[in-house]
Design a protein around this nucleic acid. Structure first.
Length: 572
RNA sequence: UGGGCCGUCGACUAAUGGUAGGUCAAGUGCCUUUGGAGCACUUUGUCUAGGUUCGAAUCCUAGCGGCCCAGCCA
């Protein structure tokens, strides 16, 4: 049965479709139905503040916040800041900013470092219960004793120290009496477990490092595994979503909660988002930034939320995309085309239309009076009548797109060519009469005639033209820099390299093209930073922060779908 | 090679033992003052082999294929 939403009265908002099913929603719905935790739903988004958020994080954010919202629950933002060497305040600020930009507001704001005292106390309890011990082995010995994927590990020689000795040692670790790396606190579980995470995992390591929040208070820091589940538990998190690679950690997550007898948060793993022609590895994104292959974390080619924001993506488009992609436990890669569809869909509805000529070709209308001009009425957004109209100046000398004129038009080419009549959008019908060429034989000027009866773009005699092209009046146009982006990598999977190769070899040398002198209609002169437009027939563009008064810079967010390009391709 | 997770149109994802459906992509047509947008239509799929069952994408067994795990990272 088809939904009847299409029959809703014009202007009426169709009832939102029920969200597509997914296995996490099913789990939560069942728990709520069974009145588990009295039907309460609490989630959390737990980034480590060691880099900028990317589109992959957006999926986690939409899941954590979106599912909680659906069930009337709450969501915390918690920074998993247990490794001071990699973390920084700069990242926590950018993360907060990006989450808000995406459209979400957290209920509680926490840091794992808020729990360091509690965690320390819990570690002491485990020692007293004979469930944890201090190991003096070197990192290398610990690795050796851990065994391999196929062989069991062996007990550390320090595994059976007395509780009193362990307590004393751990206190001195905490007092800062030992150098980095000299000792660790380990959980006493099972060195023969087929799950390597259960082979006496490290709970605390010694790190004489300054933490961005706790300063020099702590010379020891808990590992992720000894912090995450307990943090969830302290926040009474009912459903703790994380990515698939943590599935092997779940038994350990549960083990600590059980040994400590604390609130039983439940971990649920889902698949990460992968996208073609880009990558989500924070480490590699950082490398691109540090090696100067891109211009910072917010380079519009980056898959970071800050990059996408600068590129002109809307939060709504990203949320819709994430919703459409869904969630499962398979490892797949979503086509970039799907992301682009959702920006176009959103921008098509909301972005005002303007005319801009990127590769200008001069057109002179010989029978239009010199030193005369007029203003044409142009529709701001055909998708939204309330957006109104504006005036666009017209005169004898114009610019059109170089692509919109062919001296020798190929078959199927509908645009301007000698003897052919086309419409100037919101202007007049014009017919090409002759061309002026430079010494290289390139057309640098097209002379046309116009039909005064077609003002506004309609012929009273009802004759049709096959093409409508955009233009800018030479005398009135403003100059702008326009940055055209292509995919950052030229391979669908940038990690696909020859033996011994490196992903940077797959960087697309054409990922950025700068047009220094585009010609824009004058209404764009004072467009505010971040403003988004459709340049008619070209794509969606937004104002970049590099803009200077009188010299705007535009980024192309995404091109319009280009049927002509498709025709050309299919004809070779 | 031990353990864990996972295989559904080209991509992503539904169907919870009972009609294999949706979105993107691709294609065809209509419409059009954006070769845009919109509308209509179309193509293509349950990894393989057995089994259970009136009935299997779903349950079982065995293969095959992919991903993750041997940090004092998260």
């Amino acid at each position: 049965m088809k939904p009847l939403s299409a029959e809703a009265a014009p202007g009426e908002i169709a009832a939102p479709e029920p969200p597509p099913c997914n296995f996490i929603r099913d789990i939560i719905a069942e728990d709520v139905k069974a009145n588990k935790h009295n039907g309460r739903v609490q989630t959390r988004f737990p980034p480590e503040p060691n880099g900028y958020l990317h589109i992959g994080h957006a999926k986690a954010i939409c899941l954590d916040f979106g599912l909680a919202d659906e069930f009337g629950g709450r969501t915390n933002l918690r920074f998993d800041d247990t490794n001071p060497q990699k973390e920084d305040k700069e990242y926590v600020e950018s993360i907060k900013n990006d989450v808000k930009w995406l459209g979400y507001q957290w209920d509680g704001l926490y840091y794992a470092s808020d729990y360091f005292d509690q965690l320390y106390e819990w570690a002491t309890k485990l020692i007293k219960d004979g469930k944890a011990y201090v190991d003096d082995s070197s990192a290398e010995d610990i690795r050796r004793y851990r065994g391999t994927l196929t062989e069991p590990g062996k007990d550390s020689p320090y595994r059976n120290r007395s509780i009193e000795e362990n307590l004393g040692l751990f206190e001195r670790m905490r007092a800062g009496q030992y150098p980095d790396g000299s000792r660790v606190l380990r959980a006493k579980i099972d060195m023969a477990s087929p799950n390597l995470n259960l082979r006496d995992p490290v709970m605390y390591r010694i790190l004489h490092a300054e933490h961005h929040r706790t300063g020099n208070k702590w010379p020891i820091y808990p590992m992720y595994d000894f912090a995450h589940g307990q943090s969830d538990s302290l926040e009474n998190v009912t459903h703790s979503m994380c990515s698939l690679e943590f599935a092997d950690h779940q038994p350990l997550y549960n083990w600590f909660i059980e040994q400590l007898g604390i609130f039983p948060s439940r971990q649920i793993e889902f698949d990460r988002l992968n996208l073609t022609y880009t990558m989500m590895s924070k480490r590699k994104l950082r490398q691109l930034v540090e090696e100067g292959r891109v211009n910072g974390w917010d380079d519009p080619r980056m898959p970071t939320l800050s990059g996408m924001r600068r590129r002109g993506y809307t939060p709504k488009a990203i949320r819709n995309f994430v919703q459409a992609v869904g969630v499962s436990r398979t490892n797949g890669t979503v086509e970039l085309a799907m992301l682009e569809h959702f920006v176009r869909e959103d921008l098509n509805r909301h972005a005002p239309r303007v005319m801009a000529v990127l590769q200008p070709l001069k057109v002179v209308i010989d029978n239009y009076p010199e030193n005369q001009g007029e203003e044409m009425d142009a529709v701001n957004n055909p998708e939204d009548a309330s957006a109104g109209t504006r005036k666009v100046p017209f005169s004898r000398v114009l610019y059109i797109e170089q692509d919109d004129f062919r001296e020798d038009p190929p078959k199927g080419y509908f645009r301007l060519s000698p003897g052919r009549e086309v419409r100037l959008r919101y202007g007049y019908f014009i017919t090409a009469k002759s061309v002026v060429k430079n010494e290289d034989g390139e057309v640098v000027e097209v002379h046309c005639s116009f039909d005064p009866a077609t003002r506004g773009g309609n012929a009273p005699d009802g004759r049709k033209v096959k093409s409508t092209i955009h233009w800018a009046s030479a005398a009135h146009a403003i100059d702008a820099e326009v940055r055209i982006y292509e995919t950052l990598f030229s391979k669908e999977n940038p990690d696909e390299v020859q033996e011994g190769g490196n992903f940077t070899e797959n960087l697309n040398p054409l990922s950025l093209a700068v047009i220094a002198q585009a010609k824009l209609e004058p209404s764009l002169a004072n467009a505010p930073l971040g403003a988004r437009f459709q340049f008619e027939r070209l794509g969606y563009f937004c104002v970049d922060p590099d803009s200077k008064p009188g010299k705007p810079v535009f980024n192309r967010t995404v091109a319009l779908k280009d049927t002509w390009a498709k025709v050309k391709r299919s004809r070779g």
